[in-house]
Design a protein around this nucleic acid. Structure first.
Lengths: 339, 339
DNA sequence: CTCCTTGCTGTAACCGGTTTCAGGAAAAGT
DNA sequence: ACTTTTCCTGAAACCGGTTACAGCAAGGAG
């Protein structure tokens, strides 16, 4: 294992100065073809790679961007969201030679300091914040440090921050209307947390569907959970225990929908014939669940790509001050859990 | 958004030199309590955070480690593995203030250069290589650059590289024996790719179980797939089409097991009473699949933690030259897909 | 032949930290 | 009172790149 070469040594070996080697490395002009060839030869010979940390210090950019995932990203739904999103964003970032740096943590305060040092330590040129919250502290760090940020989900309270989002309201409305049109009298909404942006938007969509069909919303049928399998399962169990059997369920996540279906199955109620259940997300398992799940699909991969694109635009182009954002449409994927 | 402070400015404002501020920042001795207080005051006042890139250049370490995921990490099983592993490793790395830098890429050669620049560019202090292959090029880059690496899965051809692994052979043997003891005459093995280390080990375990029970292996019942849902599904379909109905299936991944079960269900064969199916992994969905899947659990989260620990040991302690490794036991989780 | 470009190259400063080393002041020893 | 030790501090070198600027040589114009 030979010691790591520096630009100085390459310069000496090629009989030129550091400056010239640097020019060759970065394909700058002002180097004679002959010198260039000679330097390239030496670089190849010693298979030299420049030190990116030193370059980063000098250029004040590191070609890496931070991926900030909610510290509560323990839930499976977030997992699958995360992985899809990751695939999307890295697809566009890799193309431009950007690296991804993760900020995750077990405890809340460690997470904070980790974000802060990432924001202010100059380790990343930009950041993507997942699971953004109202008045998000992490977001604040990046903004204060003057680092471009794209959030996933519309960042409430930050009117100038770029974001990508999905049409939660429209998707929820579409799903609910579909159920109402199917002739279901009541639709149980198993929502996410009440303070979650996406939950709120989905509830709005649910209400909008009722309004459009000139029907009254029964607030007893709106329940808040946490997107988890368990929250779907428990909610339905509770309803059944009270002797109420909703004829249709719209769950704000596929996982919760699966939980609901499992609860129905346990008491012998057949989903897809006796009751209808719709989920949200279209996670990869949805299509081979039993019964295959009707759900509202989010284009997560595409959202990842778009987040990457917006960030690159901010970093490379001198785009104006106007907010960049893109809201993706959802799509109702009808399978066999609805009738 | 005020401009980023430097150590120099803090020094000036506190009326001391850069050196003293540095000493205060790093809690070094040799600073009078009074001076320390004064400097800390200024630091707090301007909420100064040191530039980590500059520090990295000076110290020749960056407190970040690379996470190298196989560029073919498109399969869902890898996804879930990855996410669990990520949770584990970041749990231990965060504790020590280490960041994770991802190497992913769409195309093979871009992936190569990305790994190479990460290895030789001095951006990471250590690396974890997932999905290591025989004679792995990526691995070679890190070794050449003298950067500590831990692989996930025993790295064939690299006798001195640290690794974490799971007892694939033992787990497969346990599952197969369980099926044989249940009285199944033949066990269809739906394996992963034939050149995959884990597949080979699982096949060995399968064969060992037959040997231990003094039974002959029918090689027609060993099929290679790619761990995917589809490969399980198609394999069973093919068998059924030929008029053969295996009474037991051992799939080398939960996904393939689910595919197999789906194929059985389609023709009305009841899994868990007429046939038995065992998977491998124990992915989070396994327990609420229908029927809940009997499977061989891998402690992926723990493997992530251990990989992190080994890496830290190499980075912080002056551990000797002997290879560090840990092979985790598997566990048979019996649910309702077997009888 | 002189002057002006033009093209190529090297010197030196800079990015923002860490650390060695030397020196000054205060405290301790004799 | 003088030396020695201890404690604290700052100057300067260093990490490994990039780049502004100056200088030199060759070629073209007048």
């Amino acid at each position: 294992m030979k010691r790591k070469m520096t630009i100085q040594e390459i310069a000496r070996l090629a009989g030129v100065s550091k400056a010239t080697v640097s020019r060759v490395l970065n394909n700058k002009g002002g180097v004679s073809p002959e010198t260039r060839r000679k330097v390239e030869e030496v670089i190849r010979l010693y298979s030299y790679t420049p030190n990116l940390v030193a370059r980063g210090l000098s250029l004040k950019r590191t070609s890496s961007i931070g991926l900030i995932v909610a510290h509560t990203a323990e839930r499976l739904s977030s997992h699958l969201f995360f992985i899809e999103f990751l695939r999307g964003i890295s697809a566009v970032l890799d193309e431009r030679g950007f690296r991804l740096v993760l900020a995750t943590a077990e405890s809340e305060d460690r997470y904070e300091t980790s974000c802060r040092s990432m924001a202010e330590g100059g380790v990343v040129d930009g950041a993507v914040v997942l699971g953004v919250r109202r008045n998000d502290k992490r977001l604040r760090y990046f903004l204060r440090a003057g680092i471009p940020v794209v959030t996933v989900g519309r960042p409430i309270g930050f009117p100038r921050v770029d974001y990508v989002d999905v049409d939660n309201r429209g998707g929820a409305r579409m799903a609910t209307e579909y159920l109402l049109r199917l002739g279901h009298g009541e639709v149980l909404l198993i929502n996410g947390p009440a303070d979650h942006t996406a939950s709120l938007a989905r509830e709005k969509g649910y209400r909008a569907a009722f309004k459009a069909m000139k029907r009254e919303v029964d607030t007893d049928l709106i329940v808040y959970g946490d997107f988890s399998f368990e929250s779907g399962y428990e909610t339905v169990r509770r309803f059944l225990a009270k002797g109420k059997t909703p004829s249709a369920v719209f769950a704000a996540s596929d996982l919760a929908a699966m939980g609901a279906i499992t609860a129905f199955k346990e008491v012998g109620i057949r989903v897809g014939s006796e009751v209808s259940v719709i989920g949200f997300d279209d996670i990869p398992y949805a299509h081979f669940f039993d019964p295959p799940l009707t759900t509202v699909r989010q284009p997560i991969y595409e959202m990842g790509k778009e987040a990457g694109r917006i960030l690159l635009l901010r970093l490379e182009g001198g785009t104006g001050p106007e907010r960049l954002h893109k809201v993706f449409p959802t799509q109702l994927v009808v399978r066999e859990s609805t009738i």
